[in-house]
C-alpha cells in the first residue's frame, strides 16, 4: 500500500528565470509503502530539509504533486494542511520542538488535545507510549529538566500519539551524542517493526541512516542514487559511506 507518493517536485526560491533565483529541488519523485523506513541523505545544501518540508506540507512546491494516503496535499489550504498534519502525520525535529510551558506528558498529549480527544483516551495513550519508550518516570517533568535523549523520545511519542500514516524526522539525532542517537534510532526501528509505522528520515548521520531499510541520496536538488539494505547493519553502514564518498559529501559523523 502506497502511503506517500511524490511526483516531480520542483522548488525554486525567488522568481524563476530571474537572476538570483535558486533551484533547491529540480524534480524529485519518491514513493513509500506502509511500514517502510527510508532515509534521505546528501551534503549540506543538497535540498534534504526542503524536500522533507514539502513532503510534509510545511512548505509548498513550485511545481509537482505530493499525495499522502490518496490525498493531494499540494492543493490544500494552509489551515487544511495544518489539520491534515496533526491528524495524519507525525513529526520529529532536531530541536525537539517541545513547549517549555507544558510537562512531558502534556507535550505528548498536545496533538490529541488539539483534536479534543477524551481525557481517558489521552491518559491511556500517553501511558502506553511512555512505557514503550521508557519515559514513564519523567512524565511530570518540564522539557528543560530532562536530558536530550528523553526530550527526543518525548518528541517521538508526540509524533506517534495520533497514530499517523507517516512520520517525518528531520535530523532527529542532530543534537544528540552517539549513545543517545543509538537509543533514538532503536526507538524508530522498534516502532517500524512493532507498530508497522512508516518513517521518512532526513539525516547526514550515517550511523542513524544505517538503521533504515533504504537510503536515498540527493545532490543539488535531484536524486543521485539509492541503496537498499540487504545484509546486516554493519555492511549497510559501509555501503552508505562508500556511496557518500562517490557523492562527494563529507561524512564527519562516522
Amino acid at each position: 500500500m502506497v502511503i506517500l507518493d511524490a511526483r516531480n517536485i520542483v522548488k525554486i526560491y525567488g522568481e524563476s528565470l530571474e537572476e538570483g533565483s535558486t533551484t533547491a529541488l529540480g524534480g524529485i519523485s519518491l514513493s513509500m509503502k506502509k511500514g517502510e523506513f527510508v532515509a534521505i541523505m546528501g551534503p549540506s545544501g543538497s535540498g534534504k530539509t526542503t524536500i522533507l518540508n514539502i513532503l510534509s506540507g510545511i512548505d509548498k512546491p513550485t511545481s509537482g504533486e505530493v499525495v499522502i494516503e490518496g490525498k493531494a496535499i499540494s492543493e490544500m489550504s494552509t489551515d487544511e494542511l495544518a489539520l491534515f498534519r496533526r491528524q495524519q502525520l507525525g513529526f520529529v525535529f532536531q530541536e525537539f520542538n517541545l513547549l517549555d510551558s507544558l510537562t512531558v506528558k502534556e507535550n505528548i498529549m498536545l496533538p490529541m488535545i488539539l483534536e479534543k480527544k477524551g481525557a481517558a483516551e489521552m491518559e491511556e495513550k500517553v501511558q502506553s507510549l511512555s512505557k514503550f519508550f521508557g519515559i514513564d518516570t519523567i512524565l511530570n517533568k518540564y522539557p528543560y529538566n530532562v536530558s536530550g535523549g528523553q526530550g527526543q523520545r518525548t518528541a517521538v511519542s508526540r509524533a506517534l500519539v495520533n497514530e499517523p500514516s507517516i512520520i517525518f524526522a528531520d535530523e532527529p539525532t542532530g543534537n544528540l551524542d552517539s549513545k543517545t542517537s543509538e537509543v533514538i534510532m532503536e526507538c524508530f526501528e522498534k516502532i517500524v517493526q512493532e507498530l508497522e509505522a512508516t518513517i521518512l528520515l532526513v539525516t547526514h548521520d550515517v550511523f542513524a541512516a544505517s538503521y533504515c531499510q533504504k537510503v536515498v541520496f540527493i545532490k543539488d536538488g535531484v536524486i543521485h542514487s539509492y541503496i537498499v539494505k540487504k545484509g546486516n547493519k554493519k555492511e549497510f553502514l559501509n555501503q552508505i559511506i562508500d556511496n557518500l564518498a562517490v557523492l562527494g559529501g563529507s561524512c564527519h559523523d562516522i
Binding site: 510545511i58 489551515d79 495544518a82 498534519r85 496533526r86 525535529f93 517541545l98 488539539l114
Partner: peptide, 15 residues
Amino acid sequence: AKYQKLYNIGVTTTE
C-alpha cells in the same frame, strides 16, 4: 519560534 513549533506539528493559523 514557539508558534512555528506549533505550526509544524499541525496547529492551524486560526488556532
